[in-house]
């Protein structure tokens, strides 16, 4: 499932790369779509050239490829989410285990980027997704429904960045002029979660 997750994320980012770059052109440096598209192509290459033997290896290998190959801020940020998940994920993988690992991944990216919810970053999509997963585990819902809830929470989180004023990254230099635009990092994070819901077993 993890390989399929990255393949689907790559497909969605490739499909939406112009939208992501357009969002980034409004408040950033207009490279988010291209960078992430290239990064996920490198992830695909890495997963094909060295077929991973476990879910943990998929996450670690994908995270490393993103860190090494993206070139923009989204590489180290997404890379640290997946590498941290790979570090703490226990096998066999359960929904509860996945949810706990995802939560730690989000903490890792918050720490690396020194970003908190409300700063108009990918955290504004990832943190609600993480909370939705934790609630789904608590309520004992199935995997597919849990991932769908996480995807919905991420999409809503991304949309909620539109009225926010950016406090991190290049967009923060724009001050109030960053208001009214969806954060490209939150938008791509929502795509990652949408991909997860699509490949759910």
């Amino acid at each position: 499932m993890f390989v399929a997750w990255f393949e689907e994320a790559a497909r969605l980012v490739h499909r939406d790369r112009e939208r992501l770059t357009r969002l980034d052109a409004a408040i950033g440096d207009a490279d988010h779509g291209t960078n992430l598209d290239r990064g996920l192509t490198e992830v695909h290459k890495a997963l094909t050239e060295w077929p991973p033997e476990s879910p943990v290896q998929v996450l670690t290998s994908a995270g490393t490829a993103l860190i090494r190959r993206v070139g923009g801020a989204s590489g180290p940020l997404y890379g640290s989410v997946f590498r941290q998940m790979g570090k703490v994920l226990e096998s066999p993988v359960t929904l509860a285990g996945f949810s706990a690992a995802f939560e730690e991944g989000v903490v890792a990216v918050e720490r690396l980027g020194k970003a908190a919810p409300g700063d108009k970053t990918m955290v504004d999509a990832l943190a609600p997704a993480s909370r939705a997963l934790a609630l789904a585990v608590r309520d004992g819902v199935g995997v597919r429904e849990a991932f769908e809830q996480a995807a919905r929470a991420a999409a809503e989180g991304a949309e909620a960045t539109i009225p926010m004023q950016a406090r991190k990254g290049r967009a923060s230099y724009l001050g109030e002029r960053s208001i009214g635009h969806e954060d490209p990092g939150a938008a791509s994070a929502a795509l990652f979660m949408a991909a997860l819901a699509t490949v759910a077993p």
Binding site: I67, G72, P76, L112
Partner: peptide, 10 residues
């Protein structure tokens, strides 16, 4: 700044 900082921190 930006990705330079994030990469350095890693």
């Amino acid at each position: 700044l930006g990705s330079s900082v994030l990469t350095a921190r890693l």
